[in-house]
Structures are given as structure tokens and as C-alpha cells.
């Protein structure tokens, strides 16, 4: 067991930092906010922690905490900037934001290490998998809470029908802003923990490839629940190991998997599982439904007869029913 752990430690680390990355984007999707800002925060998290540790002698925890707070604030500001954008246009604005972060990383001179990046990010307290798992456990617990009960219902409403949500007393704008702040926190955590463990970061590790990775995870795993994201993260971190025989074809295989998932399984794996589960329980409700239908059919017959009666009645009294519909 510990053999497996040590020989695959990098993969295990990757699984969970990638989980945080994907969650930082999925949490916004769940609220109907089509934003990729999480990838930018991941990049900012990595570089931010690296800069604080290398140039300003921060310790691991203080660097992480500082960057998380900064990214949360940036997230809030970003939410204000893009508050009138939606759908595709919001998505592209956030993509532009991600790309700008990448360009800054490329051109940051000695601060960001230019195109070579930063390395040697070592802290007195060594961050390793147990820390990562603890953070992820807290995050997942929060996700679980947010998917159940009143919070879960409200998020559903905010995503599916914002006008209805408003009518139900939900402040939709506040949820939108919160989604950016949370995305900032999760992205920064993922990126910060990542660099504390990998000790090196370069511009090619952040930016558009992160967006593609997160998207593939969310599409294949499912966007509604953290479970889908975890499944996706596991698949796409460990698939290369499984596909080792396939070797260099793996990126082609990825692309095909994503394409197929996008076309045929918009709900991802968790979507399919939920569907199957529901169809089974629906069958048991079918009987109740059938008798209901028979009742309605009978009522409809009565209705037709009464409608004729009503026509006659109304023709002799006041105004006929129904305007110019």
C-alpha cells in the first residue's frame, strides 16, 4: 500500500489539486454563471504563493492564506466588472481574464521568472498529501452542504430560473458575486497547494490548457455535483497510467472522449447515473400515475359536456368567455 503511495505520489497530488481547480469552475457553473475565472485564480494562486515564498520569505501557511484572501477579493472585483454579462459573452470575458494572467506571468521579468517560470519554492514546513487531503475534505464537506437542503434548492433555482428565484426571495446577484469569490478561494487553494508540492511553476502550466482540463473533467464527470468532478478528476489524472500502452495517443483519446461526452452525455457520468436511478423509481410511481391519468380522462369527459352547457348559458347572459386569445 505504501509502495503504491510513494511511487504514485505525484499523481495523487495532481488528482486533488486538479479537483480543486475543476471545483473552482464547476461551482460557478452550478449557479448558472458560465465563467472560467477559476483557472485564472489557480494561476494566480501558484504564482502568488511562489512569489511570496521566494521573494518575501513567507512560510507555507501564511503565503497560502494571503493569496487565498487576495484572490477572493479579486474575484469579488471581477464579479462587479462583469455583472452585466451572461452566457457566452461572460465565458469569453473570463477566458480573456485567464489569458491576461498568463501573459503577465510570461512578462513579469524577475518577479515571475518570465518564460522559464519560478522554481525552488521550498518552505520550512513541507506541504504534502495529508495537508492537501485535509483541505480537500473541508472543501468537499462544504460542497456536500451546499448541495443539500435549502441551499441546494436555492442554487438550483438560481441556475435554472433566475427570475423565479427572485420571486422566491433569493438575491440572485448576490449568489453570482459569491460564486466569483468562492471560485477565487478554490482556485487559489488549488494553485497554491500545487506549487507548494511541485516547487516549480511555468507559464505553460497555467492558462488555456487548465481551462480545457477543467472542462473535460466537468463534461465527463458531470457538472451538477462534486461527485462528478471527483470522478472526472480521477479519470483524467489516472487515465494516462492506464493508457500507458497507448502512450502518445493519449491526448487524441482525450479529445475523442470529450467530444463524445459533449455530444451524447451532457450531464456527464453522474448525469447518466441519476437518470437511471430516477427511471427506476419512476417505474414504481407509474402505477399511481396511471390511475391519476384515468381519473383525469374521466374529468375531461365531464368537462367537455359541461363546456357545451356553459356555452349555451353564457350566450344568453353576459360576455362569452375568452377574449381574443
Amino acid at each position: 500500500m505504501s509502495d503504491f503511495y510513494f511511487s504514485n505520489i505525484v499523481l495523487i497530488q495532481s488528482t486533488f489539486t486538479v479537483l480543486l481547480l475543476a471545483l473552482s469552475i464547476q461551482i460557478q457553473f452550478r449557479m448558472g454563471v458560465f465563467s472560467f475565472a477559476g483557472a485564472a485564480f489557480y494561476g494566480m494562486g501558484s504564482y502568488g504563493v511562489a512569489i511570496l515564498v521566494l521573494h518575501y520569505d513567507f512560510g507555507a501557511f501564511s503565503a497560502l492564506a494571503t493569496i487565498v484572501v487576495i484572490c477572493a477579493m479579486v474575484g469579488y472585483l471581477l464579479s462587479l466588472v462583469v455583472q452585466r454579462l451572461n452566457g457566452l459573452y461572460l465565458a469569453m470575458a473570463t477566458v480573456a481574464f485567464v489569458m491576461i494572467v498568463t501573459v503577465v506571468a510570461h512578462n513579469g521579468g524577475t518577479l515571475t521568472g518570465g518564460s522559464v517560470g519560478l522554481f525552488g519554492v521550498l518552505t520550512p514546513v513541507e506541504i504534502s498529501v495529508p495537508h492537501l487531503l485535509a483541505v480537500c475534505a473541508v472543501v468537499v464537506a462544504a460542497m456536500i452542504v451546499s448541495e443539500r437542503g435549502a441551499m441546494g434548492r436555492r442554487i438550483e433555482a438560481v441556475r435554472e430560473d433566475p427570475e423565479l428565484a427572485s420571486a422566491m426571495g433569493i438575491n440572485v446577484a448576490r449568489y453570482r458575486k459569491m460564486s466569483f469569490v468562492l471560485s477565487g478561494v478554490l482556485g487559489a487553494l488549488g494553485g497554491g497547494l500545487n506549487i507548494l508540492m511541485m516547487t516549480a511553476i511555468a507559464p505553460e502550466n497555467i492558462g488555456f490548457p487548465l481551462i480545457v482540463l477543467a472542462l473535460t473533467i466537468i463534461i465527463v464527470g458531470g457538472s451538477r455535483s462534486w461527485i462528478g468532478v471527483l470522478i472526472g478528476a480521477l479519470i483524467f489524472t489516472w487515465l494516462p497510467v492506464v493508457l500507458e500502452q497507448v502512450g502518445t495517443y493519449q491526448s487524441i483519446v482525450y479529445g475523442v472522449i470529450v467530444a463524445i461526452a459533449a455530444i451524447f452525455m451532457p450531464g456527464g457520468i453522474t448525469g447518466i447515473v441519476t437518470d437511471l436511478y430516477r427511471r427506476r423509481s419512476a417505474r414504481s410511481n407509474a402505477d399511481a400515475f396511471e390511475s391519476e391519468q384515468r381519473l383525469e380522462a374521466r374529468a375531461a369527459e365531464e368537462d367537455a359536456a359541461e363546456a357545451a352547457e356553459l356555452q349555451a348559458e353564457l350566450a344568453s347572459s353576459t360576455t362569452p368567455s375568452g377574449g381574443s386569445r
Binding site: 472542462l215 491526448s251 487524441i252 479529445g255 470529450v258 461526452a261
Partner: peptide
Amino acid sequence: AELQILIGGIGIGTIPVAIVQF
């Protein structure tokens, strides 16, 4: 539909890139 086409396009777009990279 719009969003799925966007995402699908991103996914599909990785295939030619991967082939040529190979």
C-alpha cells in the same frame, strides 16, 4: 445549445491538435 456547442467545439478542437502534436 449555445454553451454545449462552445464546449463541444473546445473538446473537438483538441483532437486535431493532438494528432499533429503526435
